[in-house]
Nucleic acid binder design. Structure first.
Length: 575
DNA sequence: GCCGTTTTCGGCCCGACTGTTTTCAGTCG
């Protein structure tokens, strides 16, 4: 049983416990275990096999460790099966609907024996829900609206999709009379790879006209909430947007609060409590003997952090992955920025599936101020992309030579994104590999191999002495394709030993390696590069998404090879 | 259910809104 499966089962246990009204802290313990398991890169199976104490993991105590062992050894969890005998699994789906939590889902099930979304919809349409004690006509309507919403937009928005909706809205809102500040908070500000909805925060001398202007935005599809200081709308794109107007005195506190993450905020508050303080979205308060709190800070985010002895923490780090401890110790990393990059190491041209010629890509890279760049078209087995065989690759080298002579302002390296074949061998002859400046390798096929085979396949490819970079290592497509089953921990360790760099692919559909994996790669001493995998000149600008993901991993410019000047880069990328 | 050199027991983050209520539970962020 692999880690995602174990995490899913723990999550399911937490869901059922919630429906049963179990102790909230016990439920939280299971959710914490989910988080720990999800962020692990070593298979728990290995921990069990090697007898490593599972209780070393945060949030894993005696009971959770027993659960993990049972799942690894038997492929199931008896405790979960017992729970599911009492509560049908379909109730969990009901709980996922907006405005329907564990208590109400249970109530509906008890009263009407409804356990699925379809049945719920039928009952609501028949007016049966309004008759259940504790429900009314309004709740019935909301349930129907929630079901429609749920069906239309189950998955989250990719960052660029959200940006396309949010940027014009921000421009529109900035025209509001009396608006003093406006910022996006939430996972969008933390630059998470996907966002569920958008939280906007503003200061305005007169909140009401700002609210009215917001609700009157032409792209608004429907208004869910219309208050004087808070409104919620759904845009035509299906993206839900919240706008809150807060007083200037608590803007910083509100920004911290609504930026999250939840886990970050929880730890921040706990730290405040230890110091006799209380942090809410209204500010930082010192507890008084009479129970009243004295307001002591809240105007700026930095003020809030300062009250608990912390430096301001960049939003990308706010996930409770050690950033609070780092801030307390004065060891926050100086995060990498887009302008630190001196070269793009992965892109395609018309020689395979790119849209632009080599010359156009070179001109575009030079225009972005890069010192060096890498042309890396596909290899022959990826025939749908027009991948190159040895003969065409030589022709391409000839063209690269010609383009080089016309563009002395930038160094053009010849590379190839060579397919890793099913058996771990490479899709190009050794003498051709030797003629390349850099060899990039990727998985594009047989992505469903069982874990051990996939791991062995990748390890074999990395052993090849000509290989320099392992591209989009997990091959995931966000919201569309799961990562391959592979022992990433082992692969990264071996890559570090061999001196093979791992890629952070900046395509917003991939962002592979992702934040937690990158962090691990750095800890294991892996070389890391960030590149775009551009298939047209405009996609060279995707670099910023990669950089944002790297920032979430806590990477500095010093952690990324292609921030180096060419000569040092060239030495560093050799194995 | 987890956690801890101030604790192995008693903690575990905070506030508002909504709809349904005659005083509040449930849900959300």
């Amino acid at each position: 049983m692999d880690n995602p499966e174990i995490a899913r089962i723990f999550d399911e246990v937490a869901d059922v416990l919630e429906i049963q009204g179990a102790n909230t802290f016990r439920i939280r313990a299971y959710r914490n275990a989910v988080r720990t398991v999800e962020s692990l890169t070593t298979p728990l199976r290995k921990w069990v096999e090697e007898n490593r104490p599972l209780t070393d993991l945060p949030g894993i105590g005696k009971e959770m460790a027993n659960h993990v062992r049972e799942m690894v050894e038997t492929g199931t969890l008896g405790f979960r099966d017992e729970l599911l005998a009492e509560v049908p699994r379909s109730l969990i789906e009901l709980m996922r609907l907006p405005n329907l939590g564990p208590k109400k889902a249970k109530k509906i099930y008890d009263e009407l024996k409804i356990g699925s979304v379809d049945e719920l919809e039928a009952a609501a349409k028949a007016g049966l829900i309004a008759a259940v004690p504790g429900f009314g006509a309004k709740s019935q309507e909301k349930i129907l609206a929630g079901i429609a919403e749920y069906r239309q937009h189950g998955s989250r928005f990719l960052l660029p999709q959200a940006e396309r909706a949010v940027e014009p809205l921000l421009g529109y809102l900035r025209e509001s009379p009396g608006l003093e500040r406006l910022e996006v908070a939430g996972s969008y500000r933390r630059r998470k790879e996907t966002v569920g909805d958008i939280d906007l925060l503003a200061i305005a001398s007169q909140p009401v006209p700002v609210m009215e202007r917001f609700r009157g935005y032409p792209q608004v599809d429907k208004v869910l909430n219309a208050g004087d200081t808070k409104s919620t709308v759904v845009l035509g794109s299906g993206l839900q947007v919240d706008l809150r107007v807060v007083p200037a005195d608590c803007y910083g506190a509100a920004l911290v609060y609504f930026t999250g993450s939840k886990e970050h905020n929880v730890k921040l508050r706990r730290r405040a409590v230890e110091k006799g303080l209380r942090i809410s979205e209204y500010g930082v308060f010192r507890e008084q003997p009479d129970g009243e709190g004295e307001w002591i800070a809240g105007r700026e985010e930095a003020d809030v952090y300062a009250t608990v002895g912390l430096a301001w923490i960049p939003p990308e780090l706010r996930e409770d992955r050690g950033e609070i401890e780092a801030a307390a110790a004065g060891r926050l990393p100086d995060l990498i920025r887009v302008q630190d990059l001196r070269g793009d190491l992965h892109m395609h041209s018309t020689w395979s599936d790119g849209r632009n010629s080599i010359e156009e890509m070179v001109t575009a890279c030079a225009a972005r101020g890069y010192e060096y760049m890498v042309i890396s078209d596909h290899s022959k087995s990826l025939s749908m992309t027009g991948g190159l065989d040895a003969y065409r690759l030589r022709l391409q080298w000839h063209e690269i030579d010609q383009v080089r002579s016309r563009h002395p302002e930038i160094r053009v390296l010849r590379a190839m994104e060579v397919d890793i074949l099913g058996d771990g061998s490479l899709d190009l002859e050794d003498e051709m590999l030797a003629g390349l400046d850099l060899v990039l390798v990727s998985l594009h096929s047989r992505l469903d191999l069982p874990g051990e085979q996939q791991t062995a396949r990748v390890l074999k490819a990395l052993e090849h002495p000509e290989v320099n970079v392992f591209c989009h290592p997990t091959a995931r497509l966000i919201n569309r394709r799961k990562p391959v089953d592979m022992d990433l921990d082992l692969v990264l360790r071996r890559a570090a030993e061999l001196g093979v760099a791992v890629e952070l692919n900046s395509s917003p559909n991939r962002l592979d390696l992702k934040d937690t994996h990158l962090k691990l790669a750095r800890e294991l001493g892996c070389k890391v590069v960030i590149d775009t995998d551009a298939h047209r000149t405009a996609e060279l600008d995707l670099m910023r998404y990669g950089v944002e993901q790297a920032r979430r991993a806590g990477l500095t410019a010093g952690d990324v090879l292609n921030t180096l000047p060419f000569e040092t880069f060239w030495k560093a990328i050799q194995r």
